[in-house]
């Protein structure tokens, strides 16, 4: 639309803060009837800008208002973490199931079979997490540096855990207590990064459970400590985190 009429652009920009909008339209529609075009642009601008009560006006701001706006937007960006409650719930359920299955196999079946539930839980959890992560990643509208840091924290945890399991098995040591201790690290760090207290407490709980597990050989006690830590360190924070994520997404 050609805004060739003297004063029209000025009027639009003055009234509705859309100086550039006029110019952008100018490029798009050469050859249209000028009078009609100007009218259409005027109506569009009026409906777009005059009725909006959002951040759109070319109005002047005081320094205090500017600072408030900056703080508000930085706060919005900080809250744009990826949804991660799914992973805590998934792994919490899978690892509790694996621990119980391993315990049942140890007491009722062959002790040599007790590694199978862990392998199945690890493979299943890894597969579901990868599929879910890829699917969610495609939907994400923002790349947050904190998401990347959290991802690396958990990747580091997984690598260390695998090395620890291999070393423990080689030396004939049950890796359960040390893995529980190690699980406290990424859980605590994630809680601190996203400033989510239940996960921070969950991390501390894993450390306490890991320490307690060093002092007992009783299988039922080990299962209780591990499952309790998983329940309160992964599942409960996962449920609370999911609630918070749902609230933030709908806010």
């Amino acid at each position: 639309m050609h805004l060739g009429y003297p004063g029209v652009r000025e009027r639009l920009s003055k009234g509705f803060g859309a100086d550039k909008a006029g110019r952008a339209c100018e490029k798009e529609s050469d050859g249209h009837d000028q009078k009609y075009s100007v009218f259409v642009v005027y109506i569009i601008n009026k409906s777009m800008f005059a009725s909006s009560n959002t951040i759109s006006m070319e109005q002047s701001m005081t320094p205090a208002e500017s600072l408030k706006l900056i703080e508000s937007m930085i706060g919005q960006a900080k809250r744009s973490f990826s949804r991660m409650s799914f992973y805590f719930l998934l792994w919490g359920v899978l690892l509790i199931a694996a621990m119980i299955a391993a315990y049942l196999l140890r007491t009722n079946g062959s002790p040599a079979m007790q590694g199978i539930p862990w392998g199945v839980a690890g493979a299943l959890g890894g597969l579901i997490s990868s599929i879910h992560g890829a699917r969610e990643g495609r939907k994400e509208q923002v790349a947050n540096p904190m998401d990347r840091i959290i991802g690396w924290v958990w990747a580091t945890f997984v690598i260390t855990m695998i090395i620890m399991i291999v070393c423990s098995v080689k030396n004939g040591i049950d890796p359960g207590a040390n893995i529980t201790l190690l699980t406290g690290l990424p859980t605590f760090l994630t809680g601190q990064i996203i400033r989510f207290r239940p996960l921070i407490l969950g991390g501390i709980l894993f450390w306490l459970a890991g320490i307690a597990m060093q002092f007992t050989q009783d299988a039922a006690m080990l299962v209780g400590l591990y499952c309790g830590a998983m329940l309160l360190g992964y599942i409960v924070p996962g449920v609370l985190l999911k609630r918070q994520e749902d609230v933030l997404r709908t806010a």
């Binding site: 951040i55 759109s56 006006m57 070319e58 109005q59 002047s60 701001m61 500017s66 706006l69 900056i70 508000s72 937007m73 930085i74 919005q76 960006a77 900080k78 744009s80 509208q141 923002v142 790349a143 947050n144 540096p145 990347r148």
Partner: peptide, 18 residues
């Protein structure tokens, strides 16, 4: 010093891309 432009830049400061 414009509300929307400042909002956009403030938002982008906290993320890698949006």
């Amino acid at each position: 010093h414009n509300q929307l432009r400042l909002a956009v830049v403030s938002l982008l400061v906290g993320v890698e891309s949006a």
